[in-house]
Every structure is written in C-alpha cells, then in structure tokens.
C-alpha cells in the first residue's frame, strides 16, 4: 500500500479465525486504521487483498457518523434502506437491533438528543443490522469518558458472544485490547508492519479480571513490543544542555 509514493506498509499478513475477536494496537501512524479501511473496502491496496469471506463487513467509527436529520431508528436502518429493504423489514430489524444495544426506548430520539455513549450504541446497531460476518471497530471508545467506555466495552463483549461474528478492533488502549481481544496484533509504523501477535488467555472475562496477574502479564508483553528502543544509558546529558542554554 502506498500513499503519494510513500510505502504505507511492509508486507502485512494477518490470519484471523472466523468468529474470533482480534484487537490491533500500535503507535499513531502505524497504519492500523488504514488496514481496517482496506478491510472495509474503503481503500484499495496497491498490492494484495483482504478477504473477509465476501460479504460486506459492518463498521463502526470513532465518531458514530449519525445523520443529524434522522432519528435513532432511521439511522440504524440506513444500510437496509440503501440495500433496498422494505420499510416493514427495516422497522422490524431496526427495533430488534436497538433493543439489542439497549436503545429500544430511545428509537425516536434525534442524534442531538443522545449522549456520546448512546450515539455509539446507535452506530453499533447500524453496523450490525445487516448481520455482517465481520465487525470492524475503528477506535469506537476513544472519544468516550471512562465509565461510558466501560459500558460500551461490556456491550461489545456481549454482542460478540451473542452474534458470534468476527470482530476486529483497532484501539489505542492496551487494556481495552487485552480485555476484549482473544488475539492482540501489535503494529509499528513508517512503514506499517506487524511486530507480534499475542494470544490472550485470561482466567475469566469479567471486569475484575483486569486486576489479575495474568492480565498484567499480557499487558506487559504487549507493552514491551510497542516500546521504542532507547539509546544505551539513556539520553546523553550533552544533548540536553543546548536546550538549557548551557555549554555541552
């Protein structure tokens, strides 16, 4: 994949088992989002391909991208409407999906009347309404506060268990990646490449698991792969002196 002559990726090959939950982490600019957009068909790679089994994946973005003139129900049913489904089918599936994400009572609220977490739930319901075989999540919680992020994470875990689709989550949060993912792919940038793939084996998937040693170890091993090498002996005092105005 190249952008304006710049190579965005080294050869990247990720094998994802159908029905698994994979988190992709990496520093800013390492190409995680680009990879996800290629998988969604929004970008065409200059070489290679992404195979998600043929069907169109569902996708949820950092900003839920709701149409401000449509209520929650009409936003959720947009993909079906664009695919030519009947209004009855749209309504039935729309209310089912809204109930699934805990928004059944707010179906007629406009996006301006919804909180950030509620808007994200609507975005998730829209991404899932076509029952896609894969769900692509591009930092869905990064703009949310800590408590809302927790509830959305729990919802994501429940939806994955309930629907059994493949989920690919791009996130900046290592804790989120480890808690939700059964596999964590670590990428590094310029050009983007996969550094390592970690299988995550935790004793449980309850929120309390985040205080266990196993969770800490998983985090540590990923963190090690993400840390940039430092010069031996740290930063030389001589290189700091010129910023302090002193002589080297």
């Amino acid at each position: 994949m190249t952008f304006a002559g710049l190579r965005a990726f080294e050869p990247v090959s990720i094998d994802i088992k159908a029905g698994s939950f994979v988190s992709i982490v990496g520093t800013s600019g390492c190409g995680k989002t680009t990879l996800l957009r290629i998988a969604a068909g929004l970008l065409t790679p200059s070489e290679g391909s992404v195979d998600l089994g043929g069907a169109r994946p569902g996708m949820c973005f950092q900003d839920p991208r709701l149409l401000p003139w449509r209520n929650a129900m009409d936003n959720v049913t947009l993909p079906l409407e664009l695919a030519g489904a009947s209004p009855d089918e749209c309504q039935d599936r729309g209310i089912e999906m809204l109930r699934m994400v805990g928004m059944g009572d707010a179906w007629n609220r406009m996006p301006s009347q919804l909180s950030g977490g509620m808007r994200m739930r609507v975005g998730l319901a829209r991404a899932l309404i076509e029952r896609p075989p894969a769900l692509l999540l591009d930092e869905p919680c990064s703009a949310l506060d800590e408590i809302t992020r927790e509830t959305i994470n729990e919802l994501l875990a429940d939806l994955w268990k309930e629907l059994g689709m493949t989920v690919v989550l791009v996130t900046h949060s290592l804790a989120e990646a480890v808690y939700l993912g059964r596999q964590v792919v670590v990428m590094t940038g310029r050009p983007g490449r996969v550094v390592s793939v970690h299988g995550i084996h935790l004793p449980s998937r309850q929120p309390e698991v985040r205080t266990t040693v196993e969770f800490a170890r998983a985090l540590q091993s990923i963190y090690r792969d993400m840390t940039l090498p430092r010069p031996p002996g740290g930063i030389a005092p001589s290189s700091l002196a010129k910023y302090a105005g002193g002589e080297p």
């Binding site: 068909g41 929004l42 996708m59 973005f61 991208r65 664009l82 695919a83």
Partner: peptide, 14 residues
C-alpha cells in the same frame, strides 16, 4: 457534505 458521511454511504454501496 461531511466527507465522513460520504464515506459511510460508500461503505454501504450507495
């Protein structure tokens, strides 16, 4: 028109 929303419509093949 918001390019993000245009992209959303492209995602759904509009």
């Amino acid at each position: 028109t918001d390019p993000n929303l245009r992209e959303l419509f492209r995602l759904y093949g509009a």
